[in-house]
Amino acid sequence: MTGFTLEVRDVTKRYGDGPTAVSAVRGVSLAVQPGEVVLIMGPSGSGKTTLLSMMGALLSPTSGTISLDGTVISALGEGRLPEIRLRKFGFIFQDFNLLSALSVLENVAIVAELAGHKRGEAREKATQILTELGLQERLRFLPEKLSGGEKQRVAIARALVNDPALLLADEPTANLDSAIGHEIMRILRRVAKEKGRAVVIVSHDQRIRDIADRVLWLEDGEFAEAIELATDPVCGMSVERAKATTAERDGATLFFCSRGCRAEFLGQLPTDGIDPASA
């Protein structure tokens, strides 16, 4: 066991053969821990969606391996993948992708039914998750009657209904305004932290960087300089791990925006509250 939810090792995806071959993803490696939120950013055409498709077992890599909870899913035959997708992954899309003919409740419950839950049980579970996400008044609504934020919350509920190990989100805030986008991201972060799910998000949206534990930059199919973010435990600000002031406690590394926050955390702050070192 690696202790990682998802492990991507030296994965390449090439389309075509010979001189016309195009590599969408080149030798990418990545490991995601339970409870971690990883944001993959990059310009259009950088291979983000191809990578996400491979991580979600919707596309096979040309080379390299992808493991989920210790199982090498990239080596599994097509016949076993639906089961993996159904039970191990939760997908969230930019376009929400709800089934238009089904109600909110049915959209969520049907995924549980596909996983073998009985109808009543599936509906009960779906109702509970939708209620947690504040949609208890919308259970009978068709998707067309919902706002963008509500649709995305339904999609999150659908992604969570089979208790997956990993949530994969493709531009989850792209069709939402800033406030709603932040609300969706807060929900995803809460899911990661409270339920111990790993969350991988592909996005262009700079506004959501501070929600992620790690930000990776994909360009031309390869990870460029990875900017890893951490949250200052004192002031709550997002800080770049590489540039932050650090301190160790109980074997864990903590990251601070300034020496003042670090000092406060360590109980070294002067009584007037001003840290001369940070001034």
Binding site: L58, N97, L98, L99, K151, D170
Partner: peptide, 12 residues
């Protein structure tokens, strides 16, 4: 192709 879900388009 199930990856059709990642193609952008008008969806509910």
């Amino acid at each position: 192709d199930p990856a059709i879900v990642f193609k952008r388009g008008v969806a509910p």
